[in-house]
Design a protein around this nucleic acid. Structure first.
Lengths: 200, 200
DNA sequence: GACATAATAGGAACACGTTCCACTTCGTCC
DNA sequence: GGACGAAGTGGAACGTGTTCCTATTATGTC
């Protein structure tokens, strides 16, 4: 891995800058974890990261950028952990459901964090397209890997299927985050979708 | 139609109240149509509707409620228009794609309105669950009707399929509204999803 | 018609995202 | 070491969603 990170250019700048950036992202993560989207207040992040408000805005041009960056970083970590181990299951749909359940369980264990993440992604505009695209690719590759472990080439339909599953996942997440459906409903709906798409 | 409206209880109150409510929703609609989510400012809505700010908040407890109500109303109108005519197409997937394209085209013809709508729905929390659920049911019934015109009973899979298509539609809409995908990509992605789900 | 109650007007006040400014510190080049 | 530009500090200020308060106007009851 030569160019480590695709989400953000964090290999630029001095050590002090890298440190400030890390402090900011850490503070964001903690506040999001404790109190969700509303608790990630720019003044609070600046305070917690021991940085001036103007500096915070120099590093991240908006609250949305900040959240998408912080939580994209977490997603990347989670993805690389998952990538280490082979995915259990005998059929594509079993493996996809395994991945979805595992990921969803992880998110639902941190409701506030998940709420902050989802709101940020939903409110993002074109200026964060890159960051969001990176997360989307990560998700797609997670799902296609579950569908065809070790496959070197994928059909268009594989990718399209993965995207549809990703869409369902996102909608389910939004419904759950906004309190419009329970965790169990979320899981059942995703299983249904996978079953309809991947008829083994 | 005896109880005309399911989204909001607008058959309560005096004529003056009904009139105020209508003025508020009309003002909201116009502002959203002209300038999108950001243009729907509570003070602007109050001014345009010739109502005090406090009165506006008496009728709608938040900007999100206001938008969801105003735009849910429009969605209902659009749905009832569609319901009048039979849906063309020889197969379920053709008919579903017809409905999706028609609806999507309608939305994309009013980008600002669509942006306001989508943002409001994405930012909604449990307190607007009822309104959102109503729109969701409308969408599901639109889609199942396209799948099986005139059918009296639906299988669980029919409903699940409609919900998945609705999820894809929502995600595509969000991506389009936030400038992360073009109208053409949105359409292609939806067609793909329908093709994968409804293999005639 | 007089009164009690609710609804509305008008607007101040507050919270938080964002911008801006004056000043200080840091890093680099001579 | 000194000079200069970039980066950081601290905080005021602005916009908009939301809340709150007081005076005024409708509305319904006797």
């Amino acid at each position: 891995m030569s160019s480590t990170n695709s989400l953000t250019v964090d290999d630029l700048g001095s050590a002090a800058q890298r440190d400030r950036r890390k402090r900011i992202l850490d503070a964001t993560y903690e506040l999001a974890k404790e109190g969700g989207f509303d608790a990630v207040q720019m003044r609070a992040v600046a305070d917690k990261a021991d940085v001036a408000l103007g500096t915070l805005y120099r590093y991240f041009p908006s609250k949305i950028h900040l959240l998408v960056s912080a939580l994209g970083r977490e997603f990347e970590v989670a993805e690389s952990v998952l990538r280490e181990k082979p995915i259990p299951g005998d059929t594509p749909s079993e493996r996809v459901i395994f991945v979805l359940k595992k990921t969803t369980r992880g998110l639902q264990g941190d409701p506030h964090l998940t709420e902050a993440l989802t709101r940020a992604f939903m409110f993002a505009d074109a200026s964060v397209a890159n960051e969001i695209h990176a997360v989307g690719m990560l998700l797609t590759s997670m799902l296609t890997r579950a569908m065809h472990p070790g496959a070197t080439e994928l059909t268009d339909d594989d990718v399209a299927t993965a995207r549809v599953i990703g869409d369902v996942w996102l909608s389910a997440l939004v419904a759950w985050v906004t309190g419009r459906s329970t965790a169990a409903e979320t899981g059942a709906h995703m299983e249904n979708a996978v079953r309809l798409l991947l008829r083994d």
